[in-house]
Amino acid sequence: MTKEFTCIVCPNGCQITAQWDGSRVGEISGALCPRGAAYVSQELTAPKRNIATSVRVQGGVLPLASVRLTAPIPKEAIFPALQQIQQLTLTAPVEAGTVILRGLLGYDSDVIVTRGCEKA
């Protein structure tokens, strides 16, 4: 069966078609670069996403530091992951680049600070 995808890897947003028999990925076409095929294969077998959110900061100039994951996690893990990240609280100062949680939900993905927060 033919499946259609919009690639999310870059802003080109290639329209990609792929053959899929329910377990194996067949011919993939329409991608401007090799990352498109990799994305579609992943999308058909085990779709993954990165997420960005914030973590509460105490004693900072802002109440939040922004965070993202160092590697995408399975789509179905997004909401459980958010729940776990929301339980974290940091104390200012917080520096960008700091890993604040390793191996989120057992996946090979860490939570990293993207916007730090100075002490108030």
């Binding site: 870059c10 993202r68 993207t114």
Partner: peptide, 16 residues
């Protein structure tokens, strides 16, 4: 803009 997707052209990686 805390979401990612910035810097693909500039730094060949996706940043927030």
């Amino acid at each position: 803009c805390i979401h990612d997707g910035f810097g693909l052209t500039r730094f060949s990686q996706t940043l927030s």
